[in-house]
Design a protein around this nucleic acid. Sequence first.
DNA 1: GCGTGGCATTAAGCCCCTCAA
DNA 2: TTGAGGGGCTTAATGCCACGC
Lengths: 314, 314
Amino acid sequence: MTEAPEDCSKVSPADEHRDLIEALSPNASDSILLHLAMGTMKMAGHRYGSFLDAATTAAKLAVYSTYLEQGRNLRKTGFLHHVEPKRVKAIAREIEASLEDGKFLKTLGTREPYYLIGLPHLWQEKFPWQPGQPRICQDHLTEGERQQLEATLAPNLPQARLVDSYELAELIKELHQSPDKSSESSPAPLSEALSEHIKFRLIHAGTVFQLDSPLLLDPLYGLALETYSPQDSQQRALTMIDDVAEFFRLMQGWVEAVPQVMRAVEVFDVDPARKDDALKELDQLLLKWADRYHVEGGEPMVMHLAAGPRTETP
Amino acid sequence: MTEAPEDCSKVSPADEHRDLIEALSPNASDSILLHLAMGTMKMAGHRYGSFLDAATTAAKLAVYSTYLEQGRNLRKTGFLHHVEPKRVKAIAREIEASLEDGKFLKTLGTREPYYLIGLPHLWQEKFPWQPGQPRICQDHLTEGERQQLEATLAPNLPQARLVDSYELAELIKELHQSPDKSSESSPAPLSEALSEHIKFRLIHAGTVFQLDSPLLLDPLYGLALETYSPQDSQQRALTMIDDVAEFFRLMQGWVEAVPQVMRAVEVFDVDPARKDDALKELDQLLLKWADRYHVEGGEPMVMHLAAGPRTETP
DNA sequence: GCGTGGCATTAAGCCCCTCAA
DNA sequence: TTGAGGGGCTTAATGCCACGC
């Protein structure tokens, strides 16, 4: 019950995902945005509003960059991007405040939202548990009922006792206003809705499990993971984002014709019988190549590659 | 005067660009968004609001995708993304209307905004020019003045006469309400501000030039390019976006463990004396590799690679 | 649990205008 | 021509509550 239900309609989520991307994004930029939104919101669990804020911040930085290029001309910048000069000014002020005073722009900031990352630690600190102690502390339960319930729990849970929904809400509240950033004040009002969202996300991610039972008046909640560790598929999704970001950075170097930056694309029709061989050989080629030119204390280099079936012939 | 001024401050725009990206985006997703915003707004010339709309659309699709995965449960979807169920419903309706009725979501749609692409054709159609005819048609000019002005024009202009600001505004208006999409009505009210933005963009992109002269009461405008063709640096920026999009698509396949999708990363320290050799050899290796496995009528494959200096050691 | 409705606040993307330097 | 201000419209992100199922 902690996982997203594999709902039994016709298509798998991954296909649905791909279909949406391909049906609705004739443009490369749109497609990148879509992949990014999926990765950010569905995999990493960032809020809808956070993604929008991050996109807005990126757009503001683009405006600011033009503003500098145009010699701090508000009007020209406004014309070039179709933004009111007044707004350009506000954007510039905001960004400069961020650069100078270290105030934070609304970015995603971390791969996952802080509450996913920070919860296991805080929970184990505030509601610790030692072997031999009861994991469930509910006055209205008899000792037998307690043991019966605890027997239903998974075997290798972290050293933390179960909590009720109030305690969970407390945990979430504390996590929420631990910005551990320089901005001293907590401008975050933690609404009920937000708190509920965080709770759902924690359960969805498998960090927290919910215990329902007729013996209980209200559901209890337990910590399922000792430290934050994304599932395998999530880990891959995060790696994907990192790879794409670095690929983007490298390609930007190529656009600017930075020396020692290389781009390569190979488009071909592979012999179906030798597909596996081809990929294996490519892997080996790259490994040997990097080995051949590697020296201790050389200049740091990186190379990113992705290969697979192509869908269109451009 | 048609180009962005190389403003004489301390740093070059490209450095500024890179600094902004690196100073303010500790996160891979943020960095991707920034690269994308720069490419979309500064290079391709899409509007600030268009980029925001496209990002919002991507986020909506992510929400919708979750909505389907959750068996069309509005509340759960709302919790998972911190969106009101009401809003989820509106989003779902909007997307389904788009899928069924072919209504358009607000995406970037084309690489460049239509007005950049479509203008040269429309201009040559509405204001054609033949050798021997006057390029400048202004009653208040004497024949001598006209010839004097025309002599200042660049030699190889397209077959189009110069226009005044009213005619230019007419062109822009016509372009603006040529959606050439299925949505019959033009929901676009073309404000003065938007029209001015388009005019600035056209001049900025070098598609249109402005002619000022003491002989003229008002400035005139001329078409500078026969067909839309981005400058070299813009062309590279567009290629970058395409590459990144396909790289993203391939990596998504890797995340889902699609067979025949491969990801490779090589991190090493290159012998400084052999950097060029290394890249040249890599290029050759890839070419030969693709050749070796290519057959007529095989399965379509693609491979993307970028290599260059690395900045951090992860 | 779920969908649906109402109601409220606030920011910000848009539009337009004027005036002084 | 640019900066600075004023005034206005509309959407939508975000919050809350309540009813009926």
